[in-house]
Simulated scan of single mutants.
Amino acid sequence: MEKLKTFLAAMPGLDRQRFAVRCGTTHAFLRNIVYGQRIAGEKLCVAIERESSGAVTRRDLRPADWHEIWPELAAKAAA
């Protein structure tokens, strides 16, 4: 979760809250993901990737199982 942590840390506090809202969650929940207390759901992973303009990807957020959730990305990575 280092990428998400670094991405959020680079933002001023209010921007972090706005980012979380655009992703459909709260800054507190994002913090829980960063520190391993929660796992980002599939929809949230897609939203974070979209709202971060790809700076934090689904692969970053779900390193153990991203290839099972999004097999089309695994196919692209293998090509």
Results as ranks from 00 to 15, higher is better:
residue 69 I to Y: 07
residue 54 G to E: 03
residue 52 S to F: 03
residue 17 Q to H: 13
residue 49 E to W: 05
residue 70 W to N: 08
residue 3 K to W: 05
residue 79 A to K: 15
residue 10 A to I: 00
residue 62 R to L: 07
residue 52 S to P: 00
residue 38 R to H: 14
residue 62 R to I: 01
residue 31 R to I: 12
residue 63 P to D: 12
residue 24 G to A: 10
residue 72 E to D: 15
residue 60 D to S: 04
residue 76 K to C: 07
residue 41 G to D: 13
residue 29 F to D: 08
residue 51 E to F: 02
residue 51 E to R: 01
residue 68 E to S: 11
residue 43 K to R: 12
residue 45 C to P: 06
residue 29 F to P: 00
residue 63 P to N: 09
residue 35 Y to H: 14
residue 68 E to Q: 12
residue 25 T to S: 14
residue 43 K to D: 12
residue 9 A to E: 14
residue 47 A to S: 13
residue 38 R to E: 13
residue 18 R to N: 13
residue 22 R to M: 05
residue 34 V to R: 03
residue 22 R to A: 11
residue 29 F to I: 03
residue 53 S to E: 14
residue 32 N to K: 15
residue 13 G to L: 09
residue 64 A to V: 04
residue 27 H to P: 09
residue 47 A to V: 02
residue 25 T to W: 07
residue 4 L to H: 01
residue 18 R to V: 13
residue 71 P to C: 14
residue 57 T to R: 03
residue 73 L to C: 06
residue 5 K to M: 12
residue 24 G to H: 03
residue 21 V to T: 12
residue 18 R to I: 13
residue 11 M to F: 10
residue 66 W to G: 09
residue 3 K to Q: 13
residue 21 V to A: 13
residue 18 R to L: 13
residue 51 E to A: 06
residue 10 A to Y: 00
residue 12 P to R: 10
residue 3 K to G: 05
residue 44 L to T: 04
residue 30 L to S: 03
residue 60 D to Y: 01
residue 44 L to C: 09
residue 21 V to Y: 11
residue 36 G to S: 04
residue 64 A to T: 06
residue 35 Y to R: 11
residue 24 G to D: 06
residue 68 E to I: 06
residue 48 I to Q: 09
residue 21 V to I: 13
residue 64 A to F: 08
residue 8 L to F: 05
residue 10 A to V: 00
residue 39 I to G: 11
residue 70 W to K: 07
residue 26 T to P: 02
residue 8 L to M: 15
residue 77 A to Y: 15
residue 11 M to T: 01
residue 13 G to M: 07
residue 34 V to W: 05
residue 4 L to S: 04
residue 33 I to A: 06
residue 27 H to F: 15
residue 28 A to H: 05
residue 1 M to A: 11
residue 13 G to N: 06
residue 47 A to M: 09
residue 20 A to L: 05
residue 34 V to M: 08
residue 46 V to P: 00
residue 17 Q to T: 14
residue 42 E to W: 08
residue 68 E to N: 10
residue 30 L to H: 01
residue 51 E to M: 08
residue 14 L to Y: 10
residue 76 K to I: 09
residue 41 G to V: 03
residue 63 P to Y: 09
residue 56 V to I: 04
residue 1 M to L: 08
residue 15 D to S: 11
residue 7 F to N: 03
residue 39 I to V: 13
residue 11 M to E: 06
residue 56 V to G: 12
residue 7 F to L: 05
residue 72 E to S: 12
residue 24 G to P: 01
residue 1 M to T: 05
